[in-house]
Amino acid sequence: MSYAMDMQNYTTQSETATSEPKIMARDVNVFYGPSQALKSIQLDIGANEVTSLIGPSGCGKSTFLRCLNRMNDVIENCTVEGRISLDGVDLYNSGLDPVLLRARVGMVFQKPNPFPKSIFDNIAYGPRLHGTVSNKDELDERVEKSLRRAGLWDEVKDRLDKPGTGLSGGQQQRLCIARAIAINPEVILMDEPCSALDPIATAKIEELIDELRERFTIVIVTHSMQQAARVSQKTAFFHLGELVEVGETDRLFTSPQDDRTQGYITGRFG
């Protein structure tokens, strides 16, 4: 019975735009040179919820994530077709400057990549860049707020002038999250943010993701199905460049509709 209900949810969400999803992707095809990495993806991402993208390696989930803030632009001979919109504005065809887009859509990477600068300067990088703070006090305040939201403030408040690269792996990743939220983005993209971390650091980040959901729309790529189940409200399963199935996380893991989803989550491949 619940299966049918979810089924209904699923269809309404993907076919009607009335519920105003934060991000809409329609017929998205991505090519790296001649090879096609994503095939006609249709996906809605709701505001203030965590959407996780799962699937075996090379299935295109990271590629899709990088389409959402146009980070694929940096890669040579990568072409994106179709329509992706943020709050109804087309990301690719409306003359939107990718630089402005990335100020609204932050990103956290697989490997923690703090700048080789002090902890303070790492967080202050975005606000300084975009001129969103007018004086030193505001900047201090912004740095503290971002670090507090990332749950890192108490650990680093006494050594803000020390290099960010001197922190532990988990702290570095939270520093990167703090850096991303310091520019007040609307959406945060996370590309396997815990894959380089130990279980305790992972638990902290997952907790953090859950808190951040109140303010931000979060899309997370993960290899760990447990992680997807723990942190996300919606899950999308990618396989060989196709979006196989998307739905409420609980529903997708308990009663997948597609055989491939079933196979992946029960560990038959991937």
Binding site: V74, R102, F115, L129, C176, R179
Partner: peptide
């Protein structure tokens, strides 16, 4: 200078020249 640092800067909404002057040259 690792690509990851460039990515980090671009993902913060930095332009190419900002990335060069603020991240790559200092590193």
């Amino acid at each position: 200078v690792p690509q990851s640092l460039r990515d980090a800067s671009y993902a913060m909404g930095a332009t190419k020249s900002e990335t060069i002057t603020k991240v790559i040259i200092p590193a």
